[in-house]
């Protein structure tokens, strides 16, 4: 069950091809893997993001990004009011900040703000 070097066995006739030859073959295989992975590693996600940018998916994503801003702001403000007894002010100011954060989220998600890491 746990015979790991199965690929070698399937290689066929030369059972012990010598260490140097084996390492050379391994290196070649690694290079070819890198070659294959290089373009597909970067190109494949590119494809997926384009699929992700289909209208509906984008609309769902952006609306969730925006709505979550005021919700988060409202929760923070409400919590601050509860803790600090500043009844309406925390909710009011943090709700406004939440709207700003929501718009900021949408701008960042839609690539309007070019962030280095995004």
């Amino acid at each position: 069950m746990n015979e790991k070097p199965k690929p070698e066995n399937q290689g066929g006739a030369p059972k012990a091809p010598g260490d140097s030859e084996l390492s050379a073959r391994l290196e070649k295989l690694g290079q070819r893997l890198d070659q294959v992975r290089g373009p597909s590693g970067s190109a494949q996600p590119e494809h997926r993001t384009r699929a992700d940018n289909s209208g509906l998916a984008k609309a769902f994503r952006l609306s969730a990004e925006f709505v979550s801003g005021p919700i988060a702001g409202g929760l923070i403000g409400w919590g601050a009011d509860k803790l600090l007894n500043t009844k309406p002010w925390g909710l009011m100011s943090f709700l406004m900040l939440g709207f700003l954060a929501g718009i900021y989220n949408v701008m960042r998600t839609s690539g309007f703000l070019k962030k280095p890491e995004a």
Binding site: S68, G69, A101, Y104, N105
Partner: peptide
């Protein structure tokens, strides 16, 4: 100061948007 406040709220909103998106869909 304003940007830091907005960034903090934006960070807090991440788990909300992450969960709301999947759940609402």
């Amino acid at each position: 100061p304003l940007m830091v406040a907005i960034e903090v709220i934006s960070f807090v909103s991440r788990p909300i948007s992450l969960s709301v998106r999947l759940f609402a869909n």
